[in-house]
Structures are given as C-alpha cells and as structure tokens.
Amino acid sequence: MRFLLTFLIGMAALAAQAGPPQLLLDVARFRNIDKVQKGAEVEIYVTVPTQPLTYRQRAPRSFQSAATVTLDVLKADGTSAYHEVVTLKPPVLNDTTIAIKNPQSFLKRIYLPDGKYTLRGTVKDQYRSANGETTVEKPLVLEAPAGPFLSDVVLLARPAAKSGGDDNFARGGYRLTRAPGGTYGRGADNIFFYTELHNAPQGQPLRVHYHLTTPDGSAADADASLTPQSGRPTTIAGQMPLGPLPDGPFTLFIEVYGGPGNKKLLAGHRAIGQRASAEFAPGGAAVPR
C-alpha cells in the first residue's frame, strides 16, 4: 500500500510537470571534398531533453521513457531529399523524481547537392497521446562561396581531441563532442569550437582572430597563427575562456586575415551560443536504438 501511494504521488507530480517534448537541432554545413559527389556534407546533431518525456513503469522501481525522432530534408519544390526515423530509449530510472535526467543525442551526416532545403525534425513521446509531439523546422542553404571561406562553426562541449577514427564524430582528424544547443551550463569555464577554412592562399602564414561578445558589451579577444594545408581544408580548433561573461546569449566571431601584414580579411563566420551557469548542460551523444 505504501509503494502504491508513493507511486501515485510520483505519477501525479510527473503529470503536473509534463510539457510538450523538446527538440534541439544543431546543423553544421561542410563542403564535400569528394570530386565525384559534389555538394555539401550536412551534420545534424539532434538532442532530446528527457525531462519533459513521460516515464512508464516497467517493474517495481523501474521507469523508462521513449521517443521517436523523425528527420526530413525537403527540397525547394517540397519533395523529399532525406527521411529517417530514430527511436530513443533513455536509461531506466528507479526514481522518476530525480531532478537531473540526461538528454539523449545523436548525430547524422548526410550528403546533399547545393541548393535550398528545409530541415524538419519531429519528436514524439511514445507514452503520451495528448500534447506529445513537437516539430522544429530550419531553412538550409547549401552553396560554395567564391574565394576563401569558413565552414559553419561548431560549438563543442569539450576540446577537439586528435583522433584517427572514421565515424560521424570524427572530422579533420579530430573527435568532436558537440554542445547541444550551443549551451554551456554549470561548471563550464571555456567554450570550444571547430571550423574549416577552404581555398586559403598557399605559402604564407595567416592570422586568425577570435572575438567573443555578449549583448551587454562584454567581450574577449584572442589571436592565433595558421598555416594553410595544401589540397585540403585547413582545420581550426580552439577554445576561449568564458571568464566574467554574463549568463545569456553570446556570439563567437572567427576571422581569418592574410595579405601584407595579415591585415586583409579573407574569411569570417560566427556562431551563437548560450551561457547558463545555473543549469545542468551535459555534453556527449548516446547511441540511438
């Protein structure tokens, strides 16, 4: 009887707190260096916070949630360029009142010709019919600028680690652990990032300038030297201290300079993130099942 009362109270509290499921889509565009299959490599990093999901009892002191994520890439004419459904089964919990439930993340790398697309992601709570589905859409433009250019800047949860592996988490000789939603939570003192420079002039060192700023005017700057790689994209991986920057959104600008005295702007890109020092924002990805 005591267990039943505790269970009912827990379920009532969970139902009161339950909102619609959430879905974070982080998209990074890279050039496909394959001369046969031209176009872009698109990395879609999907994160589903498990806090809003419904947990079903499987056994005494055993609860689990489940969700499906449907990913679609639609061409400009509305036809499908990519479609996949992924099922997520978060770890079993013995107590649904646990305040921290780790999000579930996975990464997909797809190859698309240049053009205009729409990325659509839908998450569905498997154990809830009412208010149990959320859809997120993002425009996706793939093109190759003329001259030197930077790929999208990827915000990382930890430093890019040298790796000889060949999987979705490896790029440019590094293993990348993304920061879901570009959010840096409790205990994060630095932001980490990765991008690639294309069509860089050969035979001269370049200067890379990093500028981190927030809406209230707080800022931090750093410089580094860069020697372009021949015949391949030049990787740029680094970090910047968050220091005294306040909570809230921030923008990281990465600029590459060359020419006489390295004063001519050759390429630039930016990434927008979020600092939330009071929240728990773990990094890393779980393998989808």
Rank of each mutant, 00 (worst) to 15 (best):
D77L: 10
V42S: 10
A99G: 05
S151F: 06
L107A: 14
D125I: 08
E137P: 03
A276P: 08
N190F: 10
T235K: 01
V69F: 12
L23D: 07
L23T: 08
D95M: 04
L119T: 01
R207L: 06
A237L: 01
E133F: 05
A237E: 02
I110Q: 08
L142V: 09
Y55F: 14
Y82Q: 11
L53M: 01
V69A: 08
V208N: 00
P180I: 13
L88Y: 14
V73K: 11
L119Y: 05
H211L: 10
H269D: 09
A161N: 00
L197K: 04
Q51L: 14
V69L: 10
D223F: 07
A146T: 13
R232I: 07
T50C: 11
F149W: 14
D247Q: 09
F3P: 10
A99I: 12
R207T: 07
I33T: 11
T70P: 05
V153S: 05
E41N: 11
A130K: 15
Q51G: 10
R29M: 06
L150E: 06
H209D: 12
Y117E: 05
Q239C: 00
D34I: 02
V208I: 02
T235H: 02
F149S: 04
I100P: 06
P90M: 09
K124I: 13
L150Y: 04
L8P: 04
Y257F: 07
I110S: 07
L140C: 06
Q17C: 07
E137V: 05
L74V: 09
T134W: 05
L93I: 05
D216R: 12
T87R: 15
A278N: 11
A276E: 13
L71R: 12
M11A: 07
H209A: 11
L245E: 08
S151N: 07
P205E: 08
Q104Y: 14
G164L: 03
P249K: 13
A146W: 01
R186G: 03
G187S: 09
N102I: 13
E255M: 05
T234E: 03
Y194N: 05
G78L: 08
V154N: 04
A276S: 13
G165V: 02
E43S: 13
T6I: 06
R58S: 11
F169H: 12
P241E: 00
F280Y: 15
L156H: 05
P260Y: 00
P215R: 13
Y45I: 13
Q274M: 15
T235W: 00
D34W: 03
E196K: 02
P215D: 13
I44D: 09
R128E: 06
T251P: 07
A200P: 03
E84L: 15
